[in-house]
Design a protein around this nucleic acid. Sequence first.
RNA 1: GCGAGGGUAGCCAAGCGGCCAACGGCGGCGGACUCAAGAUCCGCUCGUGUAGACGUUCGUGGGUUCGAUUCCCUCCCCUCGCACCA
Length: 893
Amino acid sequence: MSDAGYDHAAVEQRWQAAWDDAGAYRTSDDVDDPTYVLGMYPYPSGKLHMGHVRNYTITDAYARYRRMQGDDVLHPMGWDAFGLPAENAAKERDTNPRDWTFDCIDTMRDQMRAMGFGYDWEREIATCTPEYYQWNQWLFSRFHEEDLVERRDAEVNWCPHCETVLADEQVEGEAELCWRCDTPVEQRELEQWFLKITEYADELLEDIDELEGWPNSVRQMQRNWIGRQYGAEVEFEIGGHGSVTAFTTRLDTIHGATFFALAPDHPISEQAAEEDDDVRHFIEHEADPEGDEPNGVATDLTATNPVTGEEIPVYVADFVLSDVGTGALMAVPGHDERDHAFAEKMGEEIVPVIAPEPEEGEEPEIPDISEEAFTDDGVLVNSGEYDGLDSETARERLTDDIESAEHTTQYQLRDWGISRQRYWGTPIPVVHCHDGCGSVVVPDEELPVELPEFINTTGNPLDAAEEWKQTTCPDCGGDATRETDTMDTFVDSSWYFLRYVSPELDEAPFDLARANDWMPVDQYVGGIEHAVMHLLYSRFFTKVLADHEGLEHREPFTNLLAQGMVQLEGEKMSKSKGNTVSPQRIVEEYGADTARLFMMQAAQPERDFDWSEEGVRSTNAFLTRLKEMVEDFATEQPAGEDDAIARYVANEIDATVAIAGGEYDDLTFNRALRETQDLVRTLRQYAAYTEPHAETYERGLSAVVRLLAPVAPHLAEELYAELDTGEDGDENRTENAFVVDASWPTATVDREYVTKRRQLVENTREDVRDIIDVAGIEDPQAIDVVVAPDWKYDALEIAIESDAPNLIGELMQESHIREQGDAAADYGQDLQAEREALSMTLGPDEEHEALESAAWLLEREFEAPVSVVHADEVDESVLKNAAPGRPAIEIDD
RNA sequence: GCGAGGGUAGCCAAGCGGCCAACGGCGGCGGACUCAAGAUCCGCUCGUGUAGACGUUCGUGGGUUCGAUUCCCUCCCCUCGCACCA
């Protein structure tokens, strides 16, 4: 057996060319409702990395599996082609983003073809083409019509290095670093375009419950991100400044509000700063919202508690954040940890107003809040007429009773600022009229607003494109200036999955009727890093399109798989660490099939796993051996009998097929492939032990080839062509057909039967080994395996079904069991002892058959003849140890 | 702190009420094949045991159950996400 591998390059090129010629992966527009399998489209960086390979091998394998199951499949690919790196690269190389991007796309497309991914390239899209991005602009107009677009001044995250605005989600960590370049982010005030995703906050949140095909972690991350909280707004009068609204989730604690606190940038704080040097000093120099320590300064203002009428001091404090709630809060140090810490620091009063829920009939016991706040709900104390109410009732009552109080809901989700001060993105289709029409959306017939030629400049190239900028107002015809902001690339990716449905359409972003038929995406696969942004924005777009454009789906992705990382020695592969493994090198050295098979078999798709050169080599060796087996078979058909061994192998084929199919359904390729590899081993053992029965052996090889085809498609085609007889389970086969189009192998047995059968064989083999070992038998001469008598199976069945207290009595009602005398009583006692644990085994004939067909394994191992016999062929003394699921074993030494 | 997911034999990792001393892989040990090595194949890999047994194990400590690695609670630890969120 050689380990030199096979000529993977020849095999792979041959079949890639054949698939191309045949248009094997085209999905016709006519199909009704294809299974839509999608991997998150990549940013065309120019190089496929292992993460891509894993991601797209998962979708490819699943798409191929579904197809072999008889589904029509939609499996497209495209390019998230706008974005900052193209601009940076263009500057470095003195080219322009467009050329650079298309070069990268060409390279990556070639690499994908080399991997053998079965995409319908006729549906390829690139978001940086006007044919695509005009629909971003068109959608912007639709959103605008529906009042889902807003332009407003906003404090934005500004990366001085990238010279661009970043979304909150693009700012990372405590240190607030840019997600791309790790530069500390600054704040700037700019006029920005926003999409009002907050209008959909409730639906986006509530529909998460329905997304049962999504991982919990992603669902939870989205819930947190939306961050809905029910509470109340309540007004406090501040002397000289009128009323100020505070948001609280704990209106029940209002009697314990002993001071009031404002964010440093709250309007009243700013007014106070003008009159009060201490406050100004605090705001300008001391406030540190990032710090752990709560800092604050007393003002000479007081606020009136609307329920007690008490005057309480007002602080400006840096732990109060202007973008949380209303930027003003009533502080209840007795029942809020942060307020407690601040009160202690400032020497403010701490009053308990909530006591833990007392036992039935007992009085509430006021908690000790001197050291620590009591933050649970409970019953009210020190709260006048509200004493004794539970927290929840009190919140309702107080909201009703306090004139200024009302229920409100707070969200952490903010509107989506889509403006970017960059060149390489979709121009926001707006012109600013100089004659008073304001900001006017460009009419549909003038779309697309195309990007001008790239200008290499430090700021925004669109700002420097003077000629492009000058235009006329669509409303009044007067002079106007184009908007120079471009869209966040997450706009592009929020609907690209719809474009694949009709990528050439030039009247609309997507063909509505077809999208209604084909959507949603059945299986979406991508990295966990998109858990919030991309996936939330896509859901938002889908809902807007459902509300206003007739899309009949409110969620874009039915099943989501967040694939794990490919690591090297437990560490994430990254360029900066220099521990990457190049897919290209692996493909050259071992071939695409080896790379794909190794990855899919190494771990469950959602788990991280370590790349291992050793593993790759052994995967390659496996494929090489398989190829040799098939070639040997094709060269000279064996002429063995259809004997017990052949039956064992046939059963193993069924077992493998039954198990692997289920695993493919669950996308647990690793298990499906393990079973498949085991079957190959069984076939090898079979061929090594005896002359195989040709039909059985071929059926096994054919099953293996087809089970492997989704993951190692090139070699599978090669071997499928080699096995070109019309074999079992694949009646649809025609001459020269692709394995891509082959039907998935079928098994006539179910998993449960398979498992029982395997268990019986395995247990029996182990028992024989145990006996030989423990008894110290050097050289066994003969092994008898005796299946239990039929009556024991009957007794077992009765025992399982019976709920009579006296099992023995029940059994003895059966005459054929009673006749067994002491043996029946003994076995009855065994059954009684294990009564609750009993389960049905195979029947006596099935057991006999299973053992007889597995006998060769024992003969091979112990080099002794094995006979499997029925109970009636042996002496009674032997039968004592025989039970259903456990034959008696007699070894002669 | 809150939320999600985890902690299983030397390592990785399945199982998620009885068939579990616990699948599989790696590593290690022994054997077959070979002049040899590699590859491949066959076993072993918690302890004791001269016939398939017994004993102790699945983060900790409790509980439920005839029976728990599997269910419930306490605590400890890890990973991820969110977080001075009112």
